[in-house]
Amino acid sequence: MSADTEVPEIERAGFVERAIVRHRGDSSTPAFDQVAEEIPVALVFNGISHVVMMATPRDLEAFAHGFALTEGVVASAAAIFDCEVFLRDDSAEVAMTIAQEDFVRLKDRRRALTGRSGCGVCGIDSLELLDLRPEALPPPVIAVDLPQALAKAAAGLRAHQALMAATGGVHAAAWCTPQGEIVHVFEDIGRHNGLDKLIGHLALQGVDLRRGFVFLSSRGSYELARKVARMRVPLLATISAPSSLAIRIATEAGMKLVGFCRQDAFVDYTPHISL
Results as ranks from 00 to 15, higher is better:
227 K>G: 02
10 I>K: 13
232 R>Q: 13
212 G>P: 02
189 I>L: 13
231 M>E: 13
109 R>K: 13
31 A>E: 11
11 E>C: 03
43 L>P: 00
244 S>W: 11
137 L>D: 13
255 M>R: 11
2 S>N: 12
175 W>R: 10
12 R>G: 03
221 S>M: 07
181 E>M: 07
185 V>W: 09
2 S>M: 05
111 R>D: 13
157 L>W: 03
266 F>A: 04
49 S>R: 13
226 R>N: 10
72 G>D: 08
89 D>F: 01
253 A>S: 08
105 R>Q: 14
265 A>L: 11
211 R>Q: 14
214 V>F: 12
241 A>F: 13
164 M>H: 12
171 H>Y: 15
174 A>Y: 14
136 A>K: 15
202 L>F: 06
232 R>I: 03
31 A>N: 04
31 A>L: 04
55 A>S: 12
107 K>I: 15
79 A>Q: 13
247 I>W: 06
63 F>N: 01
200 G>A: 09
150 L>A: 05
268 D>N: 15
157 L>A: 05
15 F>R: 02
224 L>C: 04
213 F>Q: 02
141 V>H: 13
252 E>S: 09
38 E>L: 04
148 Q>V: 14
231 M>T: 01
164 M>C: 02
235 L>D: 04
27 S>Y: 09
263 Q>Y: 02
224 L>R: 02
168 G>M: 06
131 D>P: 01
14 G>V: 07
154 A>P: 00
11 E>Y: 08
14 G>Q: 07
4 D>H: 09
254 G>E: 11
218 S>W: 07
35 V>F: 08
189 I>C: 02
79 A>N: 14
4 D>G: 06
183 V>I: 12
263 Q>F: 06
205 Q>P: 11
70 T>E: 09
3 A>S: 11
171 H>N: 14
181 E>W: 10
153 A>T: 00
245 L>P: 06
246 A>M: 05
237 A>C: 00
18 R>P: 00
65 H>W: 12
125 D>M: 07
99 A>I: 02
98 I>D: 08
149 A>L: 08
96 M>Q: 03
138 P>C: 11
175 W>T: 07
40 P>F: 03
155 A>N: 07
230 R>F: 08
201 H>P: 00
183 V>F: 04
122 C>T: 14
124 I>W: 14
217 S>C: 01
35 V>P: 04
67 F>A: 06
191 R>M: 09
39 I>E: 01
248 R>H: 12
150 L>P: 01
29 T>H: 07
106 L>F: 10
